[in-house]
Design a binder for these strands. Structure first.
Length: 211
DNA sequence: CATCCTTTGAAGCCG
DNA sequence: CGGCTTCAAAGGATG
């Protein structure tokens, strides 16, 4: 008899071979971002061959960050062993009540959400880089305007060391896999055309002929 | 208050 | 299949 969680994990197990080559990057991500190490280990453990990785006892990431990425809040200290994680009822019983709260949705999305469940795209590597470095640039340059900050970060992204960029790319892949697991069958198509049309005509209208 | 600006990358769409 | 469009984040600016 398969538990709901086991059924959820089956697709991941099937992709074990595909993900194996990512494991070194997963370890790097956990090292680079200790605040989400527990989450990374938890999320990737199902695709790892035995033995299970040592249980991370680091504190869980802030709940707001987890909700931001729509990741269920399963802090490692909620289950003393990975085996107990498969006891879904038991796990739910020990989870903090706020972890079961619905994921907050930005105001600009609430209209769409009212019509039906709105699931955001997972962030790509550059978006994760923006999120990671925005505060640093804001403090370094004393600017808050995101458009200006993004321009600066665009240049830094282009000159970023390859190995550091690969960490963000690996993290983006992890985010995408978690997103796919949480939202089976979801595609970008669901979000396409949901935003109001921007007048961002890449090729500006032809100028009038100068006589 | 809603949308724009600004970036890269992923993915949908269309001819 | 190539090129265009949309949307992920975010916070000040603008209408």
């Amino acid at each position: 008899m398969k538990t709901p969680l086991t059924m959820l994990m089956d697709p991941l197990v099937q992709e074990e071979e595909e993900l194996k080559h990512l494991l070194p990057e997963v370890a790097d991500v956990a090292e680079l971002y200790p605040e989400i190490a527990g989450l990374v280990h938890w999320a990737t453990y199902p695709v790892m061959s035995s033995p299970a990785p040592p249980l991370c006892r680091c504190p869980p990431p802030p709940l707001t960050d987890l909700q931001f990425y729509s990741i269920p809040f399963f802090p490692p200290e909620c289950f003393p062993s990975f085996e107990e994680r498969d006891d879904l009822d038991g796990l739910l019983a020990v989870m903090p009540p706020e972890a079961l709260e619905p994921v907050p949705v930005p105001k600009k999305r609430k209209r769409e959400e009212n019509k039906g469940k709105y699931i955001k795209k997972p962030p790509n590597a550059f978006m994760l880089f923006l999120k990671s470095e925005r505060k640093t640039v804001q403090e370094e340059l004393g600017i808050r305007n995101s458009a200006a900050v993004n321009k600066v970060l665009s240049e830094r992204w282009k000159s970023l060391e390859a190995n550091k960029r690969e960490l963000f790319e690996a993290e983006a892949q992890i985010e995408a896999h978690i997103h796919a697991l949480k939202n089976p069958g979801w595609t970008n198509k669901a979000n396409y055309g949901k935003k109001s049309k921007k007048s961002k005509t890449k090729a500006p209208p032809l100028p009038p002929p100068s006589c």
